[in-house]
Design a protein around this nucleic acid. Structure first.
Lengths: 208, 208
DNA sequence: CCAGGTAGTGAACATTTGTTCACTGTCTGA
DNA sequence: TCAGACAGTGAACAAATGTTCACTACCTGG
């Protein structure tokens, strides 16, 4: 998917950015169409869908639920740019994992450590299955991703609990392997679909 | 007009700030009341009116039209405050360790992770002496300190080279111990004074 | 004891809001 | 010439949304 945008899309994106900067909340579909003297919400909808597809905004089906990709609001992405990434506590059932209710803290991560147009969050490791490289209490930076590469460290949901393991795919099954030999592999077959939350891209450990 | 706010107002304001930071747009009145398990939009309305009167937010009579006073969004000093900490490369002889010449990069660290009135820097680990908990390529956050406690992980200069070890003091000598049993202890006596750069307070690992 | 402030309930209402459907027009490249 | 992309129109719908009203309960200071 090309990230080129049309002239009209660019105009609409600029209007979004300006409006959020000036008054602190996004315009509605109808405010956008009024601004451009359009008579139809469908046309605006189409443009917003395209901008979302191309990664410039994120939308929810709620009033003014347009989130502009942070780099666009703050200017050029750069080395010194920092994003406050949520550290999730107990993950409440039924909510999106990064729902506000799940966030217990926030840590600064350099933007170039984060995937482009990827959502990331931090989780605290509980078990010793990846010891000693990854220890209880460590924070892992997780980039949301539904799939993984061989050998990558991933976060999966098993029995409604997030677990950190190394991912191996063999023919018709997936193996979630611990680095700690004291722990057995978890074998996932198609009869119980695997739910990957994402892949681990960094680790942060605090020594008290 | 007092700017003191009540406990409930403070909770609601924090929720607003968190929500805007997390998902880029404000909650609706009903989302706020759902979050706090309230059954009435009027109660929320009352709090928002108070917060507006006291200058913490601005509102329009439109969906999610809550603008948080910019200073509040840009972070309270303390928890959300971030400092760019230098990552040191080759340490040039004769220069203070954190001299500009030694800095190869900077990473954001939350201020409450840093000692009060202490200088900190990041170093990249080279050897495997602390494996597996600390691996080559890992970054350690070092707080400048000339002394250490028993068992702490420290950075010492030995033969003009920074090394990461665990610190033990015995009677008249200091032992710098590796976590990796493949490495022998380094015994430091008074005939070659130990130079501690600091103690390790955090670790950051990036998985490619 | 009472007034005032704080916090909330329950309900109703009008307006806003996003989505969807079916359509038209223009432009461009094959 | 035609298909596809882009840009828009007009309409309808259901849900979301903010405001307002009248009320209750509790707490605290005068």
């Amino acid at each position: 998917m090309t990230r080129e945008i049309t002239a009209r899309q660019d105009e609409i994106l600029s209007f979004l950015i300006d409006t959020v900067r000036e008054r602190g909340y996004a315009p509605s579909i109808r405010e956008i169409s009024a601004h451009f003297n359009l008579n139809s919400t469908q046309g605006v909808q189409r443009h917003l869908e395209a901008l979302e597809k191309k990664g410039f905004i994120r939308r929810d089906s709620k009033a003014r639920a347009i989130q502009i990709t942070p780099q666009l609001l703050e200017g050029q992405p750069g080395q010194d740019e920092v994003q406050m990434i949520p550290l999730l506590g107990e993950v409440a059932a039924g909510l999106p994992i990064t729902a506000v209710e799940n966030v217990e803290d926030r840590l600064p991560i350099r933007s170039d450590w984060l995937g482009v147009n990827k959502e990331s969050f931090l989780l605290r490791v509980r078990g010793r299955s990846m010891a000693e490289a990854i220890q209880p209490g460590d924070l892992v930076l997780v980039e949301k991703h539904p799939t993984a590469q061989q050998g990558e460290i991933v976060v999966a949901l098993i029995d409604d609990e997030a677990t950190v393991k190394r991912f191996w795919r063999e023919k018709e099954r997936v193996i979630l392997r611990s680095d700690n030999p004291d722990f057995a592999d978890i074998v996932v077959t198609e009869s119980q679909p695997l739910q990957l939350l994402g892949r681990v891209t960094a680790l942060i450990r605090k020594y008290l």
